[in-house]
Nucleic acid binder design. Structure first.
Length: 817
RNA sequence: GCCGAAGUGGCGGAACUGGCAGACGCAGCGGACUCAAAAUCCGCCGUGGGCAACCACUUGGGGGUUCGAGUCCCCCCUUCGGCACCA
């Protein structure tokens, strides 16, 4: 019988299923391992990116399990979201039916890959028993002031007809449909992630097992900036105008103030004669899309006619509005120091405003400046601070501002509160009731979940379908009993995914979001794998949520994930796989052609898990050939291996050494680095070594022992990567049970150790000869052997050896003159 | 512009903390088996020179540290990713 992947795979998949192999329960006597992959959006069918992500996870889960750990390896579906609703608008099925059908297809595809998931723990976020806890968290957060309603300028996607979080705007376009995002004033629900911003930042230092680029992206996204607030008394304004600056030292060089066009004080300070011009400018900016505003770097502004006083110098500074000042960063107002800030410089040049150097970094003269000079230097033209190094002056000036009460040192962040209102149907209803007398009132806990009604019409126009559903809309106020109106917005689906990994611990729990002792046993997640595209979205939100859960007393830690890996993208012919490019590779077709095991091996072997992977069909053929070769080999020797065997004494044979070396190598790789491609390469080497051994195999009990050990270890180590083929081989070898139940083969360092090593001998940095010495030879005898080598001798002729270096097991270097 | 990752044969990639660059595979070439093909097996396979043993060169480019650099340091180039008028 030759290797028939389909027969083997379907047979073992059903055997694993029948045996309930994947199902696990808490067992305090065993060490746990929580292996998690980002759950799936049920878009229709799986793609190669999923296959890669989940194959890596499956390798880790199976390996840890073979090592004897109690491994939680669940899968679920991020089942709420826009595509389901868009499908309904296009005249398709109801979002619920569409979603369920897709889940059915995708689950089957996952099973065909041989992924060992505990499906008894499956979580679907569109299930009322799941999203009721979103609502429960929402209310808890509302009670703790972590959730609030505010009118804000928000990002509005006209195509999706909904609001987007800052994180969901890419280059001024919608992250899903890429239409231009507009700004709109709306009442929105916000989660106060900014309350945790410092902790989110500080904890990054402890995430040593996260990819550094993800940590860097989060740090960048959080955008901590130290500086100071300074208040400028302004004509026409009762309250002073507060600016944020990181360069307080340059305040004597401020020659004007600039407010964001939307700044609330703008209208107030504007003098009557400037009103028309100011209004025209504000209208113009308002009409611009976010995209236009952020891409046009042209500095434009308008004078308000008003002036403010520099609290340090007493100087009167004109107040402008300008497009380059953003309302949602700092205070929405700045002091402009054209000599030391490039944007201010450009604006000053365009509007003929003065430029004054106050930090001298060497030869800077106003008249000849072509750009701003942000460098450090010595203070000049800065009153009492003149002559000081600017950094020192900055500290003194901040202290002075605080003393005098017109400012203070401060820290600002780029991260904003998380707007979670979505004007869509297919999501978690926000559990709030608007009452004309009591205001906004949470739905009482015993009335959760607020169910999403199913009988709605999908027009795709204007408001969410919920807004016109009378049965949903009208409800009595829980406080006064009077007529109330339900909130019709639903939650951002990133709320769903912020805590799903806790739910897996006790998915059927009905009284709390997750059961305490189960969560205590399984969490935090030991190993998490997913795409890097979630670096500043999901991976920040889930950290934030975990901090909230901690403060609610639900978990004892703040960081949900110990080790994170982001798998690289799967591309084809150098380009991202996409339908429009016509370079999609369908996992099902590949399984059909080569079997799931070969697909798994190919995707694992082609590059390290975190690198980009260019899908090569020839690679799948190679993987198939490899499995075929191993299978045929096991088949060939299986009967003989049942004969008498006896552990050899004395010298270790090369095959035996190779076997133990390979176990050591693969074990180390799976325990630590996870450079899975090299682990597979060493299994290929072991296969080659076994094949090389066979022609001289004399069938003595000692030789049989060595061969059996080699073949058994090979089958076992193949199991995480190609589980079906490995189990089939295990069976041929007369073994009972599944490899995933372990044990993982053990190695003996003494056997793995080479007793002789070949060293290169360098003379003046060039390899001149090779010597073979016992691996435990001392430096003196190694040197003697090196100098005795004929080829080396020729290069030592008539020269003096001035330096001798022996690197044990590596190299000998002689330096001669 | 700022931050991050990376540049190694025809290709994917390997090389642990500085120690024989190119493991393993793909493609290619030659051979065996076959009437033939596929599959399979064996051999060759960085570049240049030489019949040869061997010699020289080679990890994006240039400098440096070192007995020794793909690996460490400085400068530059290229590609990819993130952020981007962030005050």
């Amino acid at each position: 019988m030759s290797y028939d992947p389909h027969a083997i795979e379907t047979r073992f998949q059903s055997l694993w299923n029948e045996a309930g192999t994947a199902e696990v329960t808490e067992d305090p006597t065993r060490e746990k391992f929580y292996c998690l992959e980002m759950f799936m959006y049920p878009s229709g069918k799986i793609h190669m990116g999923h296959v890669r992500n989940y194959t890596i996870g499956d390798v880790v889960a199976r390996y840890q399990r073979m090592r004897g750990k109690n491994v939680l390896h669940p899968m679920g579906f991020d089942a709420f979201g826009l595509p389901a609703e868009n499908a309904a608008i296009k005249g398709g099925a109801h979002p619920k039916a569409w979603t369920e059908a897709n889940i059915g297809t995708m689950k089957q595809q996952l099973s065909r890959m041989g992924f060992l998931y505990d499906w008894s723990r499956e979580v679907r976020t569109c299930d009322p028993e799941y999203y009721r806890w979103n609502q429960w968290f929402f209310i808890r957060m509302f009670e703790k002031g972590l959730c609030y309603r505010a009118k804000r300028t928000v990002n509005w996607c006209p195509d999706c007809a909904t609001v987007l979080a800052n994180e969901q705007v890419e280059n001024g376009t919608c992250w899903r449909c890429h239409s231009l995002v507009a700004l709109k004033e709306m009442e929105q629900w916000f989660l106060r992630i900014t309350k945790y911003v410092q902790e989110l930042l500080d904890d990054l230092d402890g995430l040593s097992r996260w990819p550094p680029e993800v940590v860097a992206m989060q740090r960048n996204w959080i955008g901590r900036s130290e500086g100071a607030f300074v208040d400028f008394a302004a004509e026409g304004s009762a309250t002073p105008i507060r600016v944020f600056t990181t360069r307080l030292d340059t305040i004597y060089g401020a020659t004007f103030l600039v407010l964001a066009p939307e700044h609330p004080a703008a209208a107030e300070v504007t003098t009557p004669d400037r009103k028309a011009a100011v209004e025209a400018f504000r209208a113009k900016v308002r009409a611009q899309s976010t995209h236009d505003r952020s891409t046009s770097k042209e500095k434009e502004g308008v004078f308000t006619g008003a002036y403010a006083d520099n609290p340090f110098s007493g100087e009167r500074l004109p107040i402008y509005l300008a497009n380059f000042v953003l309302m949602d960063y700092g205070t929405g107002a700045i002091m402009s120091v054209p000599a030391h800030d490039q944007r201010d410089f450009e604006f000053a040049k365009a509007y003929g405003l003065p430029i004054r150097v106050v930090v001298q970094s060497g030869g800077v003269v106003e008249e000849s400046m072509t750009e701003a000079v942000p460098a450090d230097g010595v203070m000049e033209a800065s009153g009492p601070y003149t002559g000081l190094p600017n950094r020192e002056a900055s500290v003194l000036m901040a202290a002075k501002a605080r003393e005098e009460g017109f400012g203070e040192p401060t820290v600002t962040f780029r991260l904003k509160d998380w707007g979670i209102s979505r004007q869509r149907y297919w999501g978690t209803p926000i559990p709030m009731i608007h009452c004309p007398t009591c205001g906004v009132v949470p739905v009482p806990e015993d009335q959760l979940p607020v169910l999403l009604p199913e009988d709605v019409a999908f027009t795709g126009k204007g408001e969410s379908p919920l807004a016109s559903h009378q049965g949903f809309l009208n409800t009595p106020c829980p406080k006064c009993g009077g007529p109330g109106r339900r909130e019709t917005d639903t939650m951002d689906t990133f709320v769903d995914s912020s805590w799903y990994f806790f739910r897996y611990c006790s998915p059927k729990e009905e009284s709390v979001p997750f059961e305490g002792s189960a969560a205590k046993y399984w969490t935090p997640v030991d190993f998490y794998i997913g795409g890097i595209e979630h670096a500043t979205m999901h991976l920040i939100y889930c950290r934030f949520f975990t901090m909230v859960l901690r403060d609610l007393g639900l978990v004892p830690f703040a960081e949900p994930v110990d080790r994170l890996m982001c798998q690289g993208m799967v591309i084809k012919d150098g380009a991202k796989m996409s339908k429009s490019l016509g370079n999609l590779v369908e996992p099902d077709e590949m399984i059909e052609r080569y079997g799931a095991d070969a697909v798994r091996i190919n995707i694992l072997f082609l590059s390290p898990p975190w690198d980009q992977l260019d899908w090569k069909e020839s690679g799948a053929e190679g993987a198939f050939r490899f499995l075929n070769r191993v299978y045929a080999l096991v088949e060939e020797v299986a009967t003989d291996l049942k004969g008498p065997a006896e552990e050899p004494a004395g010298d270790v044979s090369p095959l035996r050494r190779k076997t133990h070396q390979t176990i050591a190598k693969v074990t180390a790789e799976l325990d630590q680095r996870l450079k899975i491609n090299t682990a597979i390469a060493s299994l290929m080497e072991l296969t080659n070594a076994i094949q090389a051994f066979l022609p001289a195999y004399g069938k003595t009990p000692a030789e049989r022992f060595v061969l059996r050990e080699a073949v058994g270890a090979l089958a076992a180590m193949l199991s995480p990567f190609a589980p079906h083929a490995a189990d089939a081989m295990w069976e041929m070898l007369g073994q009972i049970g599944f490899l995933v139940d372990g044990p993982w083969p053990r190695f003996d360092a003494a056997i793995a150790k080479e007793d002789e090593v070949t060293l290169a001998v360098q003379v003046n940095g060039k390899v001149r000869g090779q010597i073979t010495v016992p691996s435990d030879a001392d430096a003196a005898s190694v040197l003697a052997a090196a100098k005795d080598n004929e080829k080396v001798k020729a290069h030592l002729e008539g020269k003096n050896v001035v330096k001798e270096i022996v690197v044990p097991g590596r190299i000998v270097t002689l330096v001669v003159k």
